[in-house]
Simulated assay, not measured.
Amino acid sequence: MASASRQDRLYPTDRERARRLWHLLEPIHAVAYFSPEPLAGYAEAGTKGFWMGYVASRAAPLGTVTAAPVVALFANFHPRRIGRALPEAWNLTSPEAMLAARRSGSAAALRRIWSTDGSGPGIDDSTLEWLADQLSDLGEGAPVDGRGLFAANLTVDRTGEPIEDLWRGATLLREHRGDGHIAAYVTEGLTGIQANLLQVGVGRIPAETLRSARAWEPEEWQREILVLAGMELLDENGQATMLGQDTLLRVEAATDRAAWGAFAHRDPADLDRLEQALGPLADAIQRSGEVPFPNPMGLERQRSE
């Protein structure tokens, strides 16, 4: 197999830009999990509790799916978290209702956060329409190979409403990256919980934030720490060893390379404009406080210019 540096020569990538774009797009997508409008929409659609709403809304593009495929595609959640939501959610609501709730609720949250009354970035309608088209085109043109959750989201059509389509485009690119991230750590021989523990081990995400969000019991968490200690990736206290740090660096580099496929054929000047337009929007979401820091996604707080 080619080394990472040789891969970059064969398939030129801009890993730094891929990661910057993730930091700009992830907050836009993430209002679906944290903002009051989509959360209220899931409850109105019939789901019970935060986690059923989360699982059913994110899995909705797959249709009336049972738990097992979602366990595989979400990857680092405990199977019981998924199993408590599916298929029971489909007795209470439908994928179509959940798709409508997350799209309209997320757009409502973004409209509020990006308001033009002086509390938001004051983005104009033409820029919103341009961003919606750009993100939609990038997502719809991204490589689909091996990306199950991304492919399912491709079946959800544009609505023609700019903020709804902007959120959809950000979601496509986010799930495209996420599918590639899972492939990257599986290639390293890691399971979902082990990938979680490496993120904790390098200090990227607090242990309790990630453990509770992914529903692992303390004894399960500790058992896997010892497994990774036996692999010399963590010490017995859960801190990453040099080998563990190197492994996570490879995972993150592979994730960035895979994510770059969505952007590789765009002119750099167009991507510059995209980053410049997204910057104030992502910053407004960060300043709103609705996406928490720290968070289970590993999204880091960005400094405002």
Rank of each mutant, 00 (worst) to 15 (best):
L226V: 14
F293A: 06
A262V: 01
I285H: 08
A253G: 08
E232S: 12
H29M: 06
A32N: 08
A229C: 04
P79A: 02
A108K: 13
V55I: 14
N76G: 05
N153K: 01
E140Q: 13
Q286C: 10
P206N: 13
D133V: 07
N91Y: 12
D145S: 11
Y42E: 11
S3A: 13
A258N: 04
A142V: 10
D235P: 02
V291I: 14
R168K: 12
E140G: 06
R250W: 00
P162N: 09
A59N: 01
L128D: 03
F293G: 07
R58A: 09
E252G: 03
D256S: 04
T159E: 07
Q222C: 00
P280N: 01
G169H: 03
P95F: 12
S35T: 11
A40V: 14
D256N: 04
F293P: 07
V156I: 12
G238F: 07
L299V: 11
A215T: 07
A107F: 05
H23A: 15
R84W: 14
L281M: 05
D14V: 03
N153S: 02
S126E: 12
R84H: 15
T171Q: 01
A142T: 11
R211A: 06
Q239T: 14
D145Y: 02
P143H: 04
P87S: 03
D117F: 01
E290P: 00
A2V: 13
I163G: 08
F74G: 01
N237Q: 15
D267Y: 00
P27L: 10
A32E: 12
F293T: 12
W260M: 02
D14W: 05
T116H: 11
D125M: 06
L128W: 05
H29V: 05
G105K: 03
T255I: 01
L228V: 09
L149K: 00
T64Y: 00
W51I: 11
R20N: 13
M98P: 03
V251H: 03
G180R: 02
R112Y: 06
R266M: 03
L62E: 07
A277C: 04
A258M: 03
F77L: 12
S115T: 11
D14H: 10
I205Y: 12
L271E: 04
E275T: 08
A229V: 04
R20S: 14
R111S: 06
A215Y: 13
W51F: 15
F77P: 01
A109G: 02
R177I: 00
A43N: 12
L243N: 10
W90D: 01
M231C: 07
D179H: 04
V71M: 10
A89W: 04
